[in-house]
Amino acid sequence: MFKRTVAVDGLTFGIDRGAAVGYIGANGAGKSTTIKMLTGILRPTAGTVRTCGLDPLRQRRRLARRIGVVFGQRSQLWWDLPLRDSFRALGAIHRLDPRPRLAELSERLDLASFLDTPVRQLSLGQRIRGEVAAALLHAPELLILDEPTIGLDVLSKERLRAFLVEQRAAFGTSLLLATHDMGDVRKLTERILLVDHGRLAFDGTLDGLARQVGAERILVLDLAEPAGPLDAVPGTRLVGVEAGGLRQRLAFAPGTTTVAAILSAVAASAQVHDLTIEEPDVEAVVRQLYARQVC
């Protein structure tokens, strides 16, 4: 027996040239299906899709010259060939000499040490950097990334994020980023589209979404010395005390207070040694948004 599932349901949006948009939602929300329609891999059963002004199905070859795509779980590199050979093959496909652009990408993404290594022998971080370089080899107008930092360590994520920011500034590249990583969304995009069950649930900024659903960020404070519970800091809610008071976790809603104000209030009773901020989980945000709509 087969069950029919509507992956994308009446979804309508547009992206301006040069914009950076985060496309977020829970697993199964329709993100990857949307990307496959935008790139001509899937045919929509209804409606119209235009990418860079082109029909992704009928003008797929022309579109391929104007977009770059990275799927975190799929590869466009040749598994058994050295990474350098994949770039040569892609250069031939796009009818360009890859060497000038590859020299720049190799320097910015630190590829030189493994350009002659077969792709199958690369670490995950090395392969993802190679995938991003391959997607940008022909200087596309639009870069589509589907979970590009999945499985990467913190340092590799930060290096990749910094590179993408630089590339957009240098070339005016449009960016569509589908991810669960709120750090990617916050650092790489200015606008978010939140989709659930194939429908557009929110179109705006990340802070705007958090304010709409009342989602809280968590400020994790590592103190210089143990202190009593910080349960009287204005605009916060104490959610945890660890290590005998050395680490305390304060929840706060963006828009109601700031980290600077919280630290100023904490300084009256404790000395902060270090701090980190935990962003709201995107799936939790989606659940809160739809719980409100149902009610």
Rank of each mutant, 00 (worst) to 15 (best):
F2Q: 11
F2M: 11
K3S: 10
K3W: 05
V6K: 11
D9M: 03
G10D: 07
D16H: 08
D16M: 03
A19K: 11
V21F: 01
V21R: 06
V21Q: 08
Y23E: 06
I24T: 07
N27L: 05
G28E: 08
K31Y: 02
T33Y: 04
M37T: 07
P44D: 06
T45F: 00
G47H: 06
V49W: 07
R50T: 15
R50N: 09
T51P: 08
C52E: 15
G53E: 10
G53R: 12
P56G: 03
L57N: 08
R58E: 14
R58T: 10
R58Q: 14
R60M: 06
R61Y: 09
G68E: 10
G68L: 08
V69Y: 04
V70A: 04
F71W: 08
G72C: 05
R74D: 10
S75F: 05
W78R: 07
W79C: 06
P82V: 12
L83E: 14
R88G: 03
A89F: 15
A89T: 15
G91D: 12
H94S: 12
H94F: 15
R95F: 05
R99C: 09
P100Y: 14
P100Q: 14
D110I: 12
S113F: 07
F114N: 13
T117R: 15
V119W: 11
Q121R: 15
S123A: 14
R127I: 06
R129D: 14
G130D: 04
G130W: 01
L136Q: 12
L136E: 10
L137D: 10
E141Y: 09
G151D: 13
G151F: 11
L155T: 15
L160A: 13
L160R: 11
R161S: 08
R161N: 11
F163W: 14
A170V: 14
F171Y: 15
G183Y: 03
D184S: 02
D184I: 05
V185S: 04
K187T: 13
L188A: 05
E190T: 11
H197I: 00
G198R: 03
G198K: 00
G198P: 07
R199W: 00
D203P: 01
D203S: 07
G204H: 03
G204V: 04
L206H: 01
L209K: 02
A210M: 08
A210D: 07
Q212T: 10
A215F: 00
R217Q: 13
L219F: 01
A224F: 00
P226L: 01
L230G: 03
D231M: 00
D231I: 00
P234I: 09
P234S: 06
R237M: 03
V239L: 04
V239H: 00
V239E: 12
G240P: 06
L246Q: 12
R247V: 12
R247H: 02
R247M: 01
Q248K: 02
Q248E: 08
A253H: 04
A253S: 07
G255W: 05
G255C: 06
T257C: 09
A265I: 07
A265C: 07
V266G: 03
A267E: 14
A270G: 05
A270Q: 04
Q271D: 06
V272K: 06
H273W: 02
L275R: 03
T276H: 03
T276M: 01
Q288K: 09
Y290R: 10
Q293I: 10
